Amino acid sequence: MSSSIPVSVLTGFLGSGKTTLLSNLLRHPGMADTAVVINEFGEVGLDHLLVEKSSENMIELSSGCLCCTVRGDLVNTLRDLHIKRAKQEIPNFKRLVIETTGLADPAPILHTLMTDPMLASYYRLDGVVTVVDAVNGEATLDNHIEAVKQAAVADRLVITKTDLVRDPASARDLDALEARLQTLNPAAPRLHAVQGEIEPDQLFNAGLYDPTRKTADVLRWLKEEAYADSHAHHGHGHDHGHHHHPDVNRHDDHVSAFCVVLDQPIDAMAFSLFVELLIGTRGENLLRVKGILNIADRPDQPAVIHGVQHVFHPVAWLEAWPSDDRRSRIVFITKDIPRSDIEKLLEGLGIGQAAAAQ
């Protein structure tokens, strides 16, 4: 994992400020060794013209939104990037950023990075960075399920255009948006970018492995106490006091984020069956699953799991536990799958013993 190239997926709904953010990031000295793939919706892309970067590492996919029909394009593009890098036809980039169209569900991109054998040999998923508009974010979440999913699966949430929040009413709207994002994705840090300005270190090295620390980022990744706090303070109504917005289409009522904590070591075969049953019956609604497991046969080496819908990344075994706490912790981000269904399936397979509700 330490020698593979980290890939960050930059997503966010139309007009959220992704291109402005990316343009500013690419001016930062710390981004000099970054390759960028920009995906455009439609036959002719324009956003790449707005990204100021004089580098041959800029590649545009113009075959439509990143979905099942263009996964082959993505695979070919990343393969070509690797070959050109190996032949020294382009600079020796050490990081890759994929900017999606605002209409994209990020899941197919994650699927591709996790399942293509060639890509897995050279690249690793670092994390998902989702951009949310401070001014229009609430209305976008109300009206577009894609925006809700983008926010729910993020490892980092970047709120843009906060410089436009200048009056008390706008400030209350921003507070409501922050509270809503906290409910949708309790463990993801929420960062503010004024006019697209943000430090790269705040966005990257967010995933399974951080080379600068030589360890998995599971403690920040999971943060089960964040899910406990979110559940206790927000409940399922998602009201947050902003009655001035009629929630006739509140998509995030269907999206849940929760952490299941298991006290006892887990039987590997039983957990494999749990995963097979879950993805076989509810795979489409598993937006993201990530966790650290205490497997009975290897108690001194925690297993790190990561799944998106029907696809699970191969298990990564850590050399040691990152803390004294050896309980298994699994975060589920789901659409229309209640926590009780997950717990009943675990209990029916005799997996671990759930701790107090998180």
Results as ranks from 00 to 15, higher is better:
Asn92Pro: 02
Asn185Glu: 07
Glu43Asn: 14
Gly17Leu: 05
Ser256Asn: 07
Ser62Thr: 11
His82Cys: 10
Ser256Leu: 00
Phe93Ala: 10
Glu224Lys: 12
Leu66Lys: 03
Leu203Tyr: 03
Cys68Lys: 05
Ala32Ser: 15
Ser54His: 14
Gln264Val: 04
Gly348Cys: 12
Leu119Phe: 14
Leu203Pro: 06
Leu278Met: 15
Phe41Leu: 14
Arg85Thr: 04
Ser4Cys: 13
Ile351Gly: 09
Pro6Glu: 09
Ala176Gly: 05
His243Trp: 12
Gly127Thr: 05
Ser54Trp: 07
Gly241His: 09
Ser256Arg: 00
Glu178His: 14
Leu177Asn: 11
Val315Asp: 08
Ser340Pro: 02
Ala120Gln: 15
Ser328Asn: 00
Ser62Trp: 00
Gly280Ala: 10
Cys68Asp: 06
Val135Asn: 10
Thr183Val: 04
Ile159Thr: 11
Ile342Asn: 03
Gly348Arg: 15
Ala169Trp: 14
Thr19Gly: 09
His192Gln: 13
Leu157Asp: 10
Val128Glu: 05
Gln195Ile: 08
Phe274Leu: 04
Glu225Ser: 07
Ile295Glu: 07
Ile266Asn: 00
Ala303Lys: 05
Leu208His: 12
Phe13Met: 00
Arg329His: 13
Lys223Ser: 15
Asp217Cys: 13
Glu199Phe: 10
Asp252Ile: 06
Asp163Asn: 15
Ile145Asp: 12
Glu319Lys: 10
Gly241Pro: 09
Thr130Trp: 03
Glu99Ile: 08
Arg95Ile: 04
Ile333Leu: 14
Arg282Pro: 02
Thr162Glu: 09
Leu318Ile: 04
Glu225Leu: 02
Thr34Asn: 08
Asp116Ser: 13
His254Ile: 04
Asp47Cys: 13
Gly350Arg: 07
Val153Pro: 03
Ile83Gly: 01
Leu49Asp: 15
Leu293Lys: 02
Arg27Ile: 13
Ser3Leu: 08
Asp252Gln: 11
Pro211Ile: 13
Leu184Gln: 03
Pro211Tyr: 13
Ser121Val: 02
Asn205Pro: 00
Ala316Asp: 15
Ser323Pro: 03
Val308Cys: 08
Asp217His: 06
Asn24Tyr: 08
Asp173Ala: 15
Asn92Ile: 02
Lys94Trp: 00
Arg124Asp: 11
Ile198Thr: 03
Asn136Val: 02
Ala228Trp: 06
Glu146Lys: 01
Val331Ser: 04
Phe332Pro: 07
Leu50Met: 14
Tyr227Leu: 07
Arg124Ile: 10
Asp167Gly: 12
Ala216Val: 09
Ala226Leu: 07
Asp324Arg: 08
Asp173Lys: 10
Pro322Ser: 07
Thr140Ile: 06
Leu22Asp: 05
Gly348Ile: 02
Cys68Ser: 09
Asp155Ile: 04
Phe271Trp: 03
Pro117Arg: 03
Arg27Pro: 00
Ala303Asn: 01
Asn185Cys: 03
Ala179Asn: 14
Thr34Lys: 00
Lys18Thr: 12
Leu103Gly: 03
Asp167Glu: 15
Pro189Phe: 03
Ser23Trp: 06
Glu225Tyr: 00
Asn294Ser: 12
Gln264Cys: 01
Arg220Met: 01
His313Tyr: 13
Lys335Gln: 15
Pro322Gly: 07
Val153Thr: 14
Val158Ala: 06
Ser8Lys: 01
Val128Met: 04
Gly235Trp: 09
Ala316Tyr: 13
Gly291His: 08
Arg166Asp: 15
Ala169Thr: 14
